[in-house]
Design a protein around this nucleic acid. Sequence first.
DNA 1: TTGAAAGCGGTACCAC
DNA 2: GTGGTACCGCTTTCAA
Lengths: 348, 348
Amino acid sequence: MESSKSGSAIPAEAEAIRKSTGIVTLADVAKLAGVSPITVSRVLNRPELVAPATIAKVRQVIERTGYVPNLLAGGLASSRTRFVAAIVPAISNQVFSESIQALTDRLWESGYQVLLGTSGYPTSREDALLAAILSRRPDGLFLTGISHSDESRRRLIAARIPIVEVWDLTPTPIDMLVGFSHVKVGEEVAECLIAKGYKRFGLVTADDARAEERNVAFRSTLDRHGFAEIATAVVQAPSNFRLGREGLSRILELGPLPRAVFCSSDTLAHGVLMEAQARGLSVPGDLAIVGFGDLNFAAYTFPSLSTVWIDRPAVGRMAADMLLARFEGKEPEKIVDVGFQVVERGTT
Amino acid sequence: MESSKSGSAIPAEAEAIRKSTGIVTLADVAKLAGVSPITVSRVLNRPELVAPATIAKVRQVIERTGYVPNLLAGGLASSRTRFVAAIVPAISNQVFSESIQALTDRLWESGYQVLLGTSGYPTSREDALLAAILSRRPDGLFLTGISHSDESRRRLIAARIPIVEVWDLTPTPIDMLVGFSHVKVGEEVAECLIAKGYKRFGLVTADDARAEERNVAFRSTLDRHGFAEIATAVVQAPSNFRLGREGLSRILELGPLPRAVFCSSDTLAHGVLMEAQARGLSVPGDLAIVGFGDLNFAAYTFPSLSTVWIDRPAVGRMAADMLLARFEGKEPEKIVDVGFQVVERGTT
DNA sequence: TTGAAAGCGGTACCAC
DNA sequence: GTGGTACCGCTTTCAA
């Protein structure tokens, strides 16, 4: 009613404007502040377009009423939902959780949130999950891995939103990519062990697609150097210590003691180490062990384990930056190789 | 145009109905199927109300067009968003991630998804996070811990949605609760160690509110039995192995060797064990170690470590069930004590 | 069993 | 700087 008076002229009765739902809407705030809805919207989203006095008035009413904006309505109207969906195989896998944490933190700084979906390791529900997630209209997508069903691929393309695939490298991502070459990992670990003078090799690995990429490269590199026989134990994902122990046992049954074992995860490597210790083998004296992932227990706990280090937070951070760039209409680098590092510990 | 012909009579031109956005809407599907929008909606949400022939017709069009429902619009119209927000201190903390996984899985079965928010351990952004989350209008909330700022408490109550707080016990939850008594944990661990005949005690603990509850109970129980002096080392959360090692070192400096040490997490316990081994102490011969949380490395790896076991998946599962019950208008039990179990390993 | 009309709570677009 | 109007895409209510 009044126009430029200070905020005290608001009739108490106006409080009752709240609908039956009992929840204050933007329109309620507008009425109480004596401005139009769009002005309240601007105070919230683009305050630089509003006069300071108006801002103060509106902010006061917002404060007083405890108004909480409805992002469903906002998203529907603007087709920008300010959230990114992330799909990982399992939330409890520390390898992914650190990337997700970094992604979440970075996006949070820019006013975005992360909806996390777990596709599941054994029985993949990726297709249904993707459909469910896309129906919430995320502004962007963070996907673990580069292999998707045809169905999913189609949906992803149809969604027409920025997408970052991570943890692998391909020249043909759906949209953008942050990863590293598992092939190179396999090669470098092999070369590293050869350089150290090891002559016999083993592989303890989960039945995981990315692990298999590393294994193939590992084997073919060794093969090229004339080491054809690789004692191999394949265990079922997800890995745990027990499987690592079993892995080594099975390898030892396969023939004479290998001197260097490459494991598909630090968890398995840890198990292998336990089994080695239980058998009285010295590590890395009798047996060199190389893990993958560099979870902290490897770094802090077992100075005798070697591992492959990946900057996991960087993966999340870079993915976030790429998505944010696209949200602002920029064209970031499409493919980023974050690389890795073989961390050697212990001596021959 | 046609009414009951089979789906082939749809004019190709009708495909062009799609708006400039290029995204198929429910209205488009309706037109193509020759029915009203509401009928399409029913096919999706309440097919039991629609004639089989109509369902088939509509489903076909949905399939052909690749229609993806817009849950923003649906949520706005129905004020049911079909998602639950969960707030945890940190996603990488395995203690929480298993509960979240169970929560996610259970809710998924009922068509709900989980939006995960991390409040952060050192600098808590819980208030801002909560505001951001509530603006997305979740149907329910899963909160770690029972202590919230006044601001948050007010918001939570104003939101008027089902809320489950977890990991602690209080007679006055905001709404519902799934937890266990940290006080009882401290008492039982103390009694257990006393019963085993230990005479000297130590505490290696992170500066965490829930840990402190356990510690107070631990100390006072020992005190009641005449063991007043408890060598204590407090380290800063989040815990890691290194801090565990340091913890034991500091305790050993405080006086003669304690025989039994209670740690605020298995991670710390693991570190304590390492330090003990490095010093040539036998465990549990010279030193009994009790952890907390029963992460698998404790279970599989260190038969000499004792720990406190909590059914973490059950926490998520029960929380999900309670929320789902409320969504259906039922009144589930408000407070559930999931209990815990002191797992003793090794011998004196 | 199906449909028409009226919102849900915001924002875009374009005047003023 | 500020406001009017239309509309985002779906569901609710009630009627047929």
